[in-house]
């Protein structure tokens, strides 16, 4: 490995964090525009993290201290590892067979860390949040794995991310169904409305994270920001043909145009003109598209739109949704995909 590649790999971590913070700014900004608010300035997520880093860390007396402090680290490391594997598959194209299995494992790690942290913090709010997070994990893991099976069938049993990313399963009925369900699972993984049940601010007062403060809370925030990069990347590789513009050439451009329209209309309605915000948003989209990440922007926008057009579900409703509707949909799409494979009909 040359010195240059080593340096590049060292750079990947900060780049991912910066991209994650930018993405969480996009989430907040676009949500604000949908809601007729002004929204935060570009560096707000970074300011939040920096501010939290300087705050005192309070640990509840009855908490299991080591687990309480380790949990955010475990989650953070897990999600960073995940993003490294995904970058490897996206940009370097030097994968190992079976990395997709590793990725699926690593994707559970943040949720497990949340459960660990919440259950060790000795707070009734956090323990109810933990119980909800556990049920939610059990709820969405099944459809997520089923969606992955659909992808496996469509791509002919590829077990490496780079191999899967050569094909575009979303361009078929079963693939499309699997993509929609997987998108909802990612929504739940990110803890976005309608699946922010474990944090449920107005019920549990941020639930699992209730007792966290200072640098530990900052770690959780950074973890969630990085998840905002890693999980859409994962969807992108699995369903949308991964990095580059060899497939779905127009998607990036279309998503950019949609975002632009949303932005301009939002600006027009709120009657203000913050030139810098416009430039920041446009440059984010521009960089993403230039870097072949237009599909990433598309997934991000879909996530934000779902977030802002739904109320929070109850945990039993969420589980019914995942185990009922989503699972049935995926079983149907697995059958469709198998039929398509058997009769060589690629659009099924």
């Amino acid at each position: 490995m040359s010195l240059f590649t080593v340096l590049l790999w060292i750079l990947v971590v900060p780049v991912t964090i910066v991209l994650g913070l930018a993405a969480s700014w996009i989430v907040r900004k676009v949500s604000a525009l949908v809601q007729w608010r002004v929204g935060p300035p570009l560096f707000q997520p970074a300011y939040d993290v920096i501010k939290l880093m300087g705050k005192e860390i309070l640990i509840p007396e009855e908490a299991n201290k080591s687990v309480f402090m380790m949990a955010p680290l475990i989650g953070f490391v897990g999600v960073l590892l995940l993003s490294l594997i995904l970058w490897n598959a996206l940009a370097v194209q030097r994968p190992f067979v079976g990395d997709v299995i590793v990725a699926i494992y690593l994707m559970v790690l943040p949720s497990l860390a949340l459960i660990l942290g919440g259950s060790s913090s000795a707070s009734p709010h956090a323990s109810i949040g933990t119980a909800r997070e556990m049920k939610l994990v059990m709820g969405y893991e099944l459809p997520l794995v089923l969606a992955f099976i659909v992808v496996l069938i469509k791509t002919g049993g590829q077990l490496s991310l780079a191999g899967i990313s050569q094909q575009v399963p979303v361009l078929s009925i079963s693939g499309m169904l699997a993509f929609i369900v997987a998108l909802l699972c990612v929504q739940a993984k990110l803890g976005f409305v309608p699946f922010d049940i474990a944090e449920a601010e107005t019920e549990l007062g941020s639930g699992v994270l209730m007792e966290y403060s200072g640098a530990l809370l900052a770690l959780w925030k950074v973890m969630q920001a990085v998840m905002l990069v890693a999980l859409p990347f994962f969807l992108m590789i699995l369903f949308l043909g991964g990095y580059g513009t060899n497939h779905l050439t127009g998607v990036g451009a279309i998503s950019a145009i949609i975002l632009l329209i949303v932005f301009v209309v939002g600006r027009f309605m709120s009657g203000r003109s913050k030139f810098l915000d416009v430039m920041a948003l446009l440059s984010f989209i521009g960089i993403c598209i230039l870097a072949g990440l237009g599909k990433y922007v598309l997934i991000l926008v879909l996530l934000i739109l779902i977030k802002n057009t739904n109320p929070r579900l109850k945990i039993d409703q969420a589980m019914k949704f995942f185990w009922g509707f989503c699972t049935v949909t995926l079983v149907v799409s697995i059958i469709l995909a198998s039929l398509g494979n058997y009769y060589n009909v690629s659009w099924l």
Binding site: Q35, W36, R37, P311, R312
Partner: peptide, 16 residues
């Protein structure tokens, strides 16, 4: 009411 069930869009629109 919208805010309490996590539907902040309704919250902001109603107040607007």
């Amino acid at each position: 009411g919208g805010h309490f069930i996590g539907y902040d869009t309704v919250f902001m629109w109603a107040w607007k």
